[in-house]
Amino acid sequence: MVKASQSSSASSLAQLKQEKIAVLYGGTSAEREVSLNSGQAIAKGLQYAGFDVTLIDTKLVPLTDLLTQKIDRVFIALHGRGGEDGCLQGALEYLGIPYTGSTVLGSSLSMDKIRSKQIFKACDLPTAPFAVVDKAHFEELSLESVLADLGGKVMVKPANEGSSIGMAQAQTVEQLGNALIEAFGFDHEVLLEAWIDGPEYTVAILGDKALPAIRMETPREFYDYEAKYQSTSTQYHCPCGLSEADESEIKALSIKAFNATGAQGWGRVDLMRNSLGVWQLLEVNTVPGMTETSLVPKAADAFGLSFSELVTQILLLSVKDKR
């Protein structure tokens, strides 16, 4: 069986090297700058591995150009709206072009923090208590009651943004009101999540495998946009410092969460461990950051995969997962 599997993989790899691959990046979402960096790194990694690669910024080039350029397959490096939420995936399926990562449903559900939380809860997967606030009914809401119901301190999250964009913590009615107004600038629905005291971890998923967990450490109030992309004080620990049993538990939980939202191929699951030692799922990311210093490449490196090998594996999964 091992030899047959290796033969099939070699055959798929040889086929892929005959194809014209487009890395779609940039776009128009709030995560454009991160996507530009991811796309450039992915293209470089694929070219190093011997693939025929074209970089295409979807802000500047219409998707129908994929047909005129005779693109055979797409590596999606678009983060956020229009790239990670199922819209692009649906368009590519309509055009008949294979692509990396999750399909329409998995992308859409994973991107929506509210629906993801509801799915975690329905599947009896651990996640912090939460409430949903709709912009249309914001003025009717008793912020004091909501804050009290969620333990007096909350994390405010736009439902469909990534990279911690629009997120804030609140522990007074005034802070919550201001944070909601800010979040409504990004989305008409906002998730209020009970504050979790404890370290944050992330687990990268590649196919059916969970890669080594990473623990993030920041002196900031939480792991926000600045901590992720601008700060020099953020630390990433891999090995993450958990016992073997705890890391096995976090990996198994991450795979369950990934499968629950219908995610596919590759991605990342973020979670925290509260002060009682209980894991709390945060979200599933189906197109996480992919610069050579991003979290998934860090986990892959600890697993023994170079960046070039990682992007090659993701491309290979696009053959297997879409059959």
Rank of each mutant, 00 (worst) to 15 (best):
M1V: 10
V2A: 11
E19M: 15
A22K: 05
S29G: 08
S29N: 03
E33K: 12
V34W: 01
K44T: 14
L46T: 11
F51S: 08
F51P: 07
D52C: 07
V53I: 14
D57P: 03
T58D: 01
P62M: 01
T68Q: 08
K70A: 13
K70F: 01
D72R: 09
V74F: 03
G80P: 06
Y94P: 00
T100H: 09
G106W: 03
S107M: 05
S108R: 10
R115M: 14
K117S: 12
K121V: 13
A128K: 04
H137N: 12
L150P: 00
V154W: 09
A159F: 00
Q171L: 05
A179Y: 06
L180V: 11
D187C: 08
V203H: 07
V203D: 05
V203Y: 03
A213S: 13
R215D: 02
T218N: 08
D224M: 08
Y225W: 08
E226R: 14
E244G: 05
E244Y: 02
A252L: 07
F258V: 04
F258K: 02
N259Y: 03
L282Q: 11
E283L: 10
V284E: 01
N285I: 02
A302S: 12
S308H: 09
L317G: 11
L317T: 12
V319D: 00
V319A: 00
D321H: 13
R323V: 13
